[in-house]
Deep mutational scan, measured.
Amino acid sequence: NITNLCPFDEVFNATRFASVYAWNRKRISNCVADYSVLYNFAPFFAFKCYGVSPTKLNDLCFTNVYADSFVIRGNEVSQIAPGQTGNIADYNYKLPDDFTGCVIAWNSNKLDSKVGGNYNYLYRLFRKSNLKPFERDISTEIYQAGNKPCNGVAGFNCYFPLRSYGFRPTYGVGHQPYRVVVLSFELLHAPATVCGPKKST
């Protein structure tokens, strides 16, 4: 009989979020998941679920829940969905086509923008091939755009693969920082350890 609540607040209220190319993952297990707390949290810009209804989450049990978190621009949030393409979905964070879970995003301009620009948040701009679902690539190898080998030196046709967002408070909404948490639900042939409040007695 599990009684402790799942530590969703640790994920959602973290002081610093990860850059999207180096997205953070927390495994959540052996706890009671009260999703209504999240669902009623006012400032969400997006709360979209795939393969599961957000209002039914509290009735369900899962083997594991993974909480992935990172920061992207407002106009990139739409790429955090199954079957998407674009710089983020291709080179930074890719969801599987059969994704079961929820994508939760909110504007973090007050936290993550600075006058003069916040350059701490990076994304991958160049990559030889697209990421596989949930693949994480933190390499900083110089990207070779031409035929000539770069030998690890940036220059003509040789690019550092990461780019900084440089968030400023005055940017338009599409270019403002958004914090994103992706909850993915794993249902294995194993005992369920993460259940909603109704199922955990």
Rank of each mutant, 00 (worst) to 15 (best):
T3A: 07
N4F: 07
L5R: 13
P7W: 05
F8H: 02
E10T: 09
F12G: 03
N13R: 04
A14Q: 14
S19C: 06
A22V: 04
N24L: 03
N24I: 04
R25E: 03
R25V: 01
R25C: 02
K26D: 05
I28R: 00
S29H: 13
D34I: 03
D34M: 06
Y35M: 15
V37Y: 15
L38S: 02
A42D: 06
A46H: 15
A46L: 15
F47W: 15
F47T: 07
K48V: 06
C49Q: 00
V52H: 03
V52N: 02
S53R: 09
S53C: 07
P54R: 13
P54Y: 12
P54E: 12
T55S: 14
K56C: 07
C61I: 09
T63E: 11
N64I: 07
N64R: 10
D68S: 02
D68P: 00
V71K: 01
V71S: 01
V71W: 01
I72E: 02
R73I: 04
R73A: 14
S78F: 05
S78E: 13
Q79P: 01
A81P: 02
A81K: 06
P82H: 01
G83F: 09
G83C: 08
T85D: 07
T85K: 14
G86Y: 01
A89Y: 01
Y91A: 06
Y91P: 03
Y93N: 01
L95F: 01
L95S: 00
L95W: 00
D98I: 05
F99H: 00
T100L: 12
G101P: 00
V103S: 00
W106K: 02
N107Y: 03
N107H: 04
N109P: 03
K110F: 07
K110S: 12
L111Q: 14
D112N: 01
S113E: 05
K114G: 11
G117L: 07
Y119A: 15
L122E: 15
L122A: 15
Y123C: 06
R124L: 04
F126G: 15
R127Q: 04
N130R: 14
K132F: 07
K132R: 12
K132A: 11
P133E: 06
F134Q: 09
F134C: 07
E135P: 01
I138W: 07
S139I: 04
S139M: 06
S139H: 08
T140I: 07
I142H: 09
Q144L: 06
Q144P: 11
A145W: 10
G146V: 06
K148H: 12
P149W: 08
A154G: 13
F156N: 14
N157W: 07
C158A: 06
F160L: 12
F160K: 15
F160V: 13
P161K: 02
P161C: 05
L162R: 03
R163K: 14
S164I: 05
S164C: 07
Y165Q: 04
F167R: 03
P169M: 05
P169E: 10
P169S: 10
T170K: 11
Y171Q: 15
G172E: 14
G174F: 08
H175G: 11
Q176L: 03
P177C: 02
Y178M: 12
Y178C: 11
R179L: 03
V181R: 00
V181E: 01
V182A: 00
E186C: 05
L187Q: 15
L188R: 13
L188T: 15
H189M: 10
H189F: 08
P191W: 05
P191T: 12
T193D: 13
T193W: 07
T193Y: 10
V194R: 10
P197G: 13
P197M: 15
P197L: 15
K198M: 13
K199N: 14
K199L: 11
S200Q: 13
S200F: 12
T201I: 13
